[in-house]
Design a protein around this nucleic acid. Sequence first.
DNA 1: TTCGGTTTTTT
DNA 2: AAAAACCGA
Length: 478
Amino acid sequence: MLLWFRNDLRVHDNPALFYFLQQHWQAYQQQGEMPQMRALFFISHGQWLQHRVSDIKIDLILRHVDWLERELGKLGVRLEVVECDNFQQQVDYLGDYCREHNIRQVVVNDELEVNERARDRQLTALGIELLAFECDVIVPKGKLVNQDRQMFKVFTPFKKAWLKYVRQNGFDYIAKDKLSPFSRFSLEAGYEDGNEYRRIKYHTGLSDAWPLVDEVERRVIPEFLEEKLESYHELRDIPAIKGTSGLSPYLAIGALSPRYLLCQLINQNPDVLNAHDSPNFAWLNELIWREFYRHLMHHFPSLAKGKNFRSKYDSLVWSQDKALFKLWCQGRTGYPIVDAAMRQLNKTGWMHNRLRMIVASFLTKHLLIDWRWGENYFMESLIDGDLAANNGGWQWAASTGCDAQPYFRIFNPVLQSKKFDPKGTFIRKYLPELNSVPDNEVHFPHDYLRKNKLDIYWPAIVDHKFARERALNFYQGA
DNA sequence: TTCGGTTTTTT
DNA sequence: AAAAACCGA
């Protein structure tokens, strides 16, 4: 039996690991012989490149692989880290490996996406039995459907069904202390610290501003739940304030379990599943959004292949203007909130959620550029890039996805800016050249700059009113 | 079980 | 402003 880590870089609430340890424990008790416990992780730069995994996310992954190797060592499991360019080579390697070591079963946690699933099917075709667990969501995918037995296409009914399911069925979760009996393994195995991988330094330092997940569990999560949860519903939309949890990078690489987060939330706030109107519900709502998009991709796998969720928009002919796209990427649109947001992304590898909606709306509705270009740029840049959530968010912004609003949604970047960054605090953090512009002018400073003969900021690349009309016509055509 | 009318919908 | 989901017949 072999344990194969993919997008589940954790020991805490990892059902594949737990099953693997239990099986070996049983064998150990029956035979009294210390089992060899092997685990595997592939470093596949070619595959990461193809899936546009950002350098900062790769760095976070590699740091956690390093950490995981030490943590597994404490449980007597030796993690081998193997460089393999792409999925095909992973399949070949595993085929040879299993034959060589006479392994029939490989234990994994399931991955949602199309290519990943195809790779797993290839392994099965080689005669390798994949024992797969599901731990990327709280409510298993496929369990929540409407009365027509279809996946919900609107968030709120999905959320109601989700809450009902959790209230009725609870949810699986493997507490940390359930692993403690297995720490005996490492003593008996005389596990020696360090292996080949540890001597190779992959770590680029790009993600150093983000602590390892063990510190996140010890410090960041308790602090968030105790100090920020109460004000989350008010502060989470204000980019100048650190009002969000900052946990998405760990969820994206599987270092954090969503089920663990729900446990912690319920410990802190026992009635949260019943309290829709409580301010403390706002954060759970975001966790349920994550579930919504994963369930959606499970039911509609073609989303992973760049398909519009609403096929009636397939006929739209998007702009191919690379120069305009580049200006958006670089944060040179002349709309300060958009430019500051893109600079935050380019500089830190992360962007505040409110800003993601604003810049996505701007690219699709104001510039009429294909949402897939924006989706790709986000994946290439974000530390927390996640196919399901990123695609869901972009298609929502482009109106090709799930959005039940009765009006056609075109964000006004200036009004968004005034509403969520009223004093321009965030704008000035990333556009310090606008420091001298008064608060009420900073959201669209062009008149002010002209009057005062200041040449410190580039012009707006598109007029809002014009762009709004153009977008309405553009979508009307579909 | 299928239908048509009514309520609801990430601002 | 329009589409999803529910609900009662």
